[in-house]
Design a protein around this nucleic acid. Sequence first.
DNA 1: CATTGATCATGT
DNA 2: ACATGATCAATG
Length: 226
Amino acid sequence: MKRYPVAPTTESELLERSHALAGLTLGEIAESVGICVPHESVRAKGFAGILLEQVLGATATSKPEPDFQLIGVELKSLPINALGKPRESTYVCTVPLINNHDIRWETSTVKRKLTRVLWVPIVVETDAPIADRRIAMPLLWSASVDEEAALRHDWEELMDMVVMGELNRVSAHHGTWLQIRPKAADSRARGRSTNTDGTPGVALPRGFYLRTSFTSKILRQHYALP
DNA sequence: CATTGATCATGT
DNA sequence: ACATGATCAATG
């Protein structure tokens, strides 16, 4: 294992680097770059994703842009069970709660992030040490025409409600593939929002998430899983 | 047991 | 406060 401090300049370079990780455990990868793996899983949320960013040379850390800015590719780690089924939904980006009247799907952060994604599946066994989680075969992916249309439909439906100031009526039940859920330190967190009458207000920050049914479909299509 | 709502860590 | 990286844990 080698660390790549330099951002990949082509997709194939990124794919090559990611393929070199397949079969390795998080412990092995972390050791190769001199990082300690957390022992408590509750304290390890996000650990795998950040480790992969480091090792693969991502540059857009903590920015509302694809991780690999140079080539427009978003990196997503994807926890799966032994059968290849995703265990969790996938966070995409924050939901804009203010100045959102003019936004369109074409220029949305959701679309920019999901245009090109490097999925890195990680086999997560319950009650096994985090260091033992093993990288499966990464997949460089784009939404098909149908998939993008479906995502766009969800996004427009959800954002229509948000723009109308009906955020309080939006729950994780809405959306076929894309959903809106809380994205905050805790349920008391508040950020700026816009009320129904257009006046400034505050609300619990939200994020867009991809349902496991969507990511599961991706893996089934590309890897011929049950 | 799948899903929703809550939560943890870190950088700007 | 807001953005990133996500997973936990209560609930139906």
